[in-house]
Every structure is written in C-alpha cells, then in structure tokens.
Design a protein around this nucleic acid. Structure first.
Lengths: 343, 343
DNA sequence: TTTAGCACTCTCCCTATGAGAGTGCTAAAT
DNA sequence: ATTTAGCACTCTCATAGGGAGAGTGCTAAA
C-alpha cells in the first residue's frame, strides 16, 4: 500500500513526538501540537490504517501509537530531513580534536565525542590495514630475545608487534634482514595481506644457501601476522543508555549491555555493514543480532588518504533522533578522515 | 564491646548465609542450618546484641538480619578462613595463561580470568614504569616527520610513543642521539621519572656548541613523557554485576556502572590502596567514593622481577565471597608476576 | 542462662475500585 | 465521499484493604 501525503505527515509527527517523549502518541496530541487542521477522529482513522500496514503499533488496545521498525525505516528513507550541525557545535568539535596529536588519543576522543553529542554509545573501529601497502619494515631489538617489528604503511599507519624468538638474533643479521625486505618492498606494491607469502618466497631463495636458521622463518611469520589481528574498538558512553526509559527494565538493559561487553561482536557487526554507502542505519530487528532488537545503529565510514580505513558507530534505542545521529556520524567521520590523513 | 565466641559463630553464620542467598537471615535459619544447639530465641538475643553494636542490621522491624560494612570488616579481619583454590582450578588458570605470549594479551586474559572466576568485575592495572631503570632508548623513523621512540626498562617492559617533530631529523642525527643517550644510560641507573632532567642537563652541555636545534629539546621532552602517561586499565565482566540481586534496582546499578565508565577513577582508587600489604579489601563505605557504597573491592599487587609493578582488582557487591575473592586475587597476581617477569 | 509461647509488625500478594487516557465505531454534518 | 462529534468500551495506573506468612521482641517459666 502506498502512503498518501496525509499519512506521511502523520507518521512523521508520530515519529518526532515519540522520539522526544518516549510515550505512545495519541491522536489528540497530534491534532493539538501539529497543526494539521484535522479532527482527532480523522487522525485516528489514518493511524488505524498505518497500524494495519505495520508502520505503527499499540502497546495495548486503548493506548497511543509507537512507530514500528518498519515505520522508522520508512521515516529514515523517505521522510526525514537532514539536520546539519550548528556552526557552534562544529567549532567545538574541531576545538576538542585540536587537543590531540596522537593516534590513540584521537580514537579515544572520537568515541567520547560520539557518546557525548548523541547521549548514546559511541563506537570507533581502528583503521584496518590489511589492504595497505607496506612502505617500510624495521626491527628493533628490545632485549630478552624479543624483537619489536615496526611496519609503516602508505597511509602512514604504524603497526607494532613484539616477537619472541627462540635463539638470539644479532643486530647485523637484523639489519641485513630489514635491508633485504625493504629493498624488495621498494620494487613493488605489497599490501599487508600478501606480505607474508611474497616475502617468504623471496627469502626462501636466498636463505636456503645463506643460512639455515629455521627460526628466522617463524620469526617473520609472526611479524607479518600484524595485519590479521583483530582491530581495536573504542567504546564510550555505556551509562548513557541507562538514561533512556526503554532500558528502565533490567532485562532490556541486559540485552544491550551484553552486546557492549562483547566488543568484538559489535565491531564485526559494524564492519559487516561497511562499504557501498558511507553512512548506514540499522534499525532494530533489521540486525540479525537478537541483542540489537531494541537498538539502532548508525555507522559511517572514514577514510585515510582516500582509502577506506574504518568506521564509527552510534548505538542507542530504536527511538533515536535519526536526523541528528546521521549528521553527527557524518560530520565526525569526515573530521576523523581529515585528521588521520594528516598524520 | 568485645564479641564472645558465640556471637562470632553467629556473625559468621549470618555472613555465610547471606552471601549465598542474598536474603536477610533469620534466627530460625541459623538454628536449623548451622547446628549451634541453641534455640531461636537465644540466637535472636545474640543477633539483637550484634545489631546494637552495628555488626548487623534489619531492612525492617520484623525481618532477618544482614551484615553491615562493619560486620563484613570484622568477618574479614577475624573470622574468615582462607579458601585456597582447588588444584583443578589452578591447572585451568595456568592452561589459559599458556595461550598468550604477548604482553597485551596477558593483561586481557588476566581481567577475563578475574571476572569469570569471581562472577564480578575484573580489573587489571598495567604496570607502572616510572620507577623502572632505563636500559635502552631507540628511535625509529616512521615517516612524515614522526619518530617512534622505544624505551626498554630493566624489568623488560617496552614503552613506545610516536612523536611528531617540526623539522626533519635525519637518520644520522637520530643514531647520534641514541648512541649518546645510551652511553649515558650505561654509566648510571636512571629511572624514567628523572630521565628527562638528567639527560637534558647532559645534552645541554654538548648541544649548545654542537647544534642549535631547539626542536631536539622539544622532541626529547615529548619522548620522555612516556613514563608519566596514565596507565592502561583492563576491565572485564561488566554484565556480571547485573546477575546480583542487589543491582536489580536501576539506581544502584547506575552507581556502579558510572564507576566503571570512568576507568581512570577506578584505576586511581586501586592505585591509592597499593603498597604495604599485598592484598587489600575495601568494603562499602570504607571507600570515599560514593559510587562504591554498595560495593567491595579486593586488590592484590603484582611484581615484575621483584619490583612492585601494578595491581589487579575484583569489584562486586559488598555481599561477596571474601575468602574466595582473596584466594583468587592472590593466586592470579602471583601467576601474573611470574609471567611478566619471564617476558 | 536458656527457652517456649505469644502478640505484634512488616512484607508481599491478591483483589477491588475508580479515575483517566485513548481508542473504535456509528451516525450526523459538511 | 469525507470529515467529525459523540459515546461506549478498553486498558493502565494508582490507591486501598485484607489475609497469609515470616520473623521479631518480650515475658514468664524452665
């Protein structure tokens, strides 16, 4: 069924009203607060039709209406008007970002910003690096048979990992290795994902007659695992969700808290929605995760030097101010892209 | 007032019973489950005295008794019997630790172990390094005018920080710097706290006529800030606390959740209790933090190569199984000390 | 000093009741 | 053909009352 203009207006009104009050919306309130010049009876009738088509629902027979997931979806796709941030807010955000010169801190600040601006949970996925081209590899001996491997990629990201080796690797051999590797890197664009295979092949050719230490193999294999490791998640604003009336009941709170506890699951979910469009909105049951039934997630991708790197997310109740969430997500992800590209 | 033996027995019984059931303990239950060969009336009388002395309290006139903070404190100091872990549990813990070869992962595993074993919140403070002696400093150029500074300490800890420099620092100059610094380090034991001052003095002597680049100063100052930075906190088991009936009411949950949200505050609190005794127990209002009113905290120090390094903590409701919490905290901190000393 | 007995208190659960909010439906008005 | 006024109906929520049950405090007897 196609919604007529009046139904769209009423659906929009219900969504807006419900987002601000968290109470079921009655026909009377709509007639009173949104000047549609219609009687409550007429509005009631339209609401009845909207309910029949699964855009609205009632908690009980004689109560007002609440948008369904489908109602929110229709609103988000067809009715909502972007609500750009005020200049003042933008300036404040820039100001806060200026405090940080470090990568880690920038990530932390981003998740804090998200949670503070939205009163929801802010999530930031650290940049993925497996598609980055390796510019440079260096080895630093840090004692006790441990080597710190430092990989620098084309987008300027630095990955570090400490590797324990069984035997002793002396400095000469390490610098020989790093010179060799870096000379190979200069010849072609190797990304972190296939770094391992390509370099191993090359190494095999020379190591076979140069020296027979197996542990160099193992050592390098460990080094190059860097790219595969799960990426860090920065999460802030857990208490924010307790402010929302929908989580007053301990069971619903439990659901969302268990979602947050398992940061990896949340991260994988967000990562799963990456690509295609910059910003995505996942509403309630649209997610396969049962813990997300009562939640919506707004994600937005960020880029480093034009290359897709990671994503930020806003997690809150389905009853969220979508226009504002989207504006914030997009503004923050743009700013983050800029900042990380400058590093 | 001095407690007589019978009062101690009854207090112990009340604590044990309340810890397992979370319900006010009646005189009847004590008479029935703990064979004291006393009538309920006698027990009732003793409980009345215990209440008068603030070891027990009643939620309302005609209900059973609950231990007060003071009651728990007396129990913990005088009555409780350590409850060592079973060999099987110890083996499982060792098994889990074996999976990890990395520092970060070891920390994460520790907080997970704490939360899983105790059904409470597990906290691990990363080692502090300001009192460590600096063995070695190395600089790695990572492009875009950024230098990765790596400091290795006597206890084998590795601190890293990426510094942005305004001008370009070439490789020769960097290696000159690091050679110079490391030669100075070899002469005396310098810990991270006074690293800055001592080295700056030395540098001033030579830099003044060698070269006049101010940014080297700034650069080094930034490098040596590593030691002062707040230490990381690893936290696990947030949902665990929702299982406890004392947090069924959303307000009390709010308190403790806000405590967890501010990891730094929790970390500072734990750090404040460090020293003197290996293991400490803080019960309810004994803490100055109002968020901790309904919680207890068990902390235990760990060491790296004999040197006090950090602490682990268990955070849960005041109604916790103290003997078990203490045993777990001590066992885990010992194991962690061993593992980190081997790194 | 300990205990049996009993009145008393408080919670918890169930039920009833009435007010209030909001709907669905129908018949009249536009 | 739409829209609206009117009204009966439904459901929630807050309040009060009453009875059962748990547990205490007190007193007098053992």
């Amino acid at each position: 069924m196609e919604l007529n203009e009046r139904m769209k207006t009423i659906l929009t009104a219900v969504v807006h009203r419900y987002i601000t009050t968290a109470e079921p919306v009655s026909s009377g309130i709509i007639a009173q607060k949104y000047n549609l010049n219609l009687s409550t009876a007429t509005i009631r009738h339209e609401m009845y039709l909207l309910e029949k088509n699964d855009y609205l629902w009632q908690p009980h027979t004689s109560s007002g209406r609440i948008p369904t997931d489908r109602g929110y979806r229709f609103y988000v796709d067809n009715l909502m008007v972007k609500n750009y941030l005020k200049e003042k807010e933008k300036r404040e955000i820039i100001q806060i970002y200026k405090k940080s010169k470090e990568f880690e801190e920038t990530m932390r600040i981003t998740s804090q910003l998200l949670s503070n601006l939205t009163n929801n949970i802010g999530v930031v996925l650290a940049p993925v690096i497996y598609n980055n081209i390796v510019k440079n590899i260096q080895f630093v001996s840090v004692g006790n048979n441990r080597i710190l491997t430092v990989i620098v990629t084309d987008t300027g990201l630095v990955c570090q990992k400490i590797i324990s080796v069984s035997g002793e690797i002396n400095t000469d051999r390490l610098s020989y290795l790093s010179n060799f590797i870096n000379s190979k890197l200069a010849e072609k664009d190797i990304n972190i994902t296939n770094l391992n295979n390509i370099l191993m092949d090359e190494l095999d050719k020379i190591i076979s007659f140069q020296e027979k230490f197996n542990y160099i193999h193992n050592f390098l294999e460990e080094c190059f695992e860097i790219g595969y490791s799960e990426n860090k998640v920065y999460l802030d604003g857990r208490i924010n969700i307790m402010k929302h009336p929908e989580f007053k009941e301990i069971d619903k709170l439990n659901y969302i808290l268990s979602l947050i506890e398992e940061e990896n699951i949340l991260a994988a979910t967000i990562r799963g929605y990456l690509g295609f469009r910059k910003t995505k909105i996942i509403i309630g049951k649209e997610s396969k995760l049962k813990e997300m039934q009562n939640c919506s997630l707004v994600t937005s991708e960020y880029r480093i030097k034009g290359k897709s790197a990671g994503a930020i997310g806003i997690l809150g109740p389905t009853r969220m101010d979508y226009p504002r969430m989207v504006s914030i997500a997009e503004y923050i992800s743009d700013k983050l892209s800029e900042i990380l590209s400058e590093f």
